[in-house]
Design a protein around this nucleic acid. Sequence first.
DNA 1: ATCCAGGATGTAT
DNA 2: ATACATCATGGA
Length: 283
Amino acid sequence: MNKYKIQAPDFDLELTMTCGQTFCWNRFNGELYGEGDSKFYTFRKEKLIIVEQKRDSIIAETELAREEVEKALGIDQNLEDIRETFPEDEILLQASKELSGLRIVQDEFFPCLVSYLCSPQMQIPRIKKMHDDIAEKFGEKINFDGDELRKFPSMEELAEASEEDLRNLGLGYRAKYVAETVKILNEGGLVISEDYERAREDLKKLYGVGDKVADCVLLFSLGFYQAYPLDTWALKAVEKYYPELYSENYDDASSNLREFFGPYSGYAQEYLFHAARKGWIDV
DNA sequence: ATCCAGGATGTAT
DNA sequence: ATACATCATGGA
């Protein structure tokens, strides 16, 4: 195991892990959304990553390269450069200040996709529970220094799960989304374009993936930082604070927002989403 | 009990 | 293209 000390004075690990963008990380000792040390783990390329917050840095333990960790946590991104792409906008400026430690993570495609397949009409803590229950039931259990760690199954491993198995985990009607999508992926039928709008259409070929889920996967695992996922919170915030950008049509609102906020619209979305969720702005 | 939650799909117009 | 019902589950 390598041990990296990474300088990250403008990074809040706790906030980044618990703000509801990722369901692929776990708190090392305890529930993700509960109390506990700011120490988290995930698996990437079958390798364990453990990250712990220090004062102005983080400590990462992993067999992977340092760059992989930085990319996974989004600390390879330069926030100054990102802010310079933003329009002059008071609300966004305010929210980005309050949330300056929040980075957009880059999770692995498959576990990220499955968690957002579970997300429709569901609250964030329950999405996480579904993700954990799938890992518990169909994933490998890894022993690390006496701790049992959860590893999310690969798409091949999850192919063993029937729709009924998934329903029994409490996925409800989302069980079919996961089961059918896993089939499609294992048949090797998905190629994702380099172009954002084409990539979103490509993802929507998966059963259970609509505009919003596609945007989440594009933003949180495939590095499309222009994606602006429009869930109910985000849409209400747009309607109230940016009525000129609002549309009931997803594609219209999306292109309006991307045109206004620019190539890092996804960061703008996260700032505004969490400002709305935390009640800093009314929706 | 009734309503609602990081929506998507199927069907009818 | 747009409108509407339907889809499971658990917590408030």
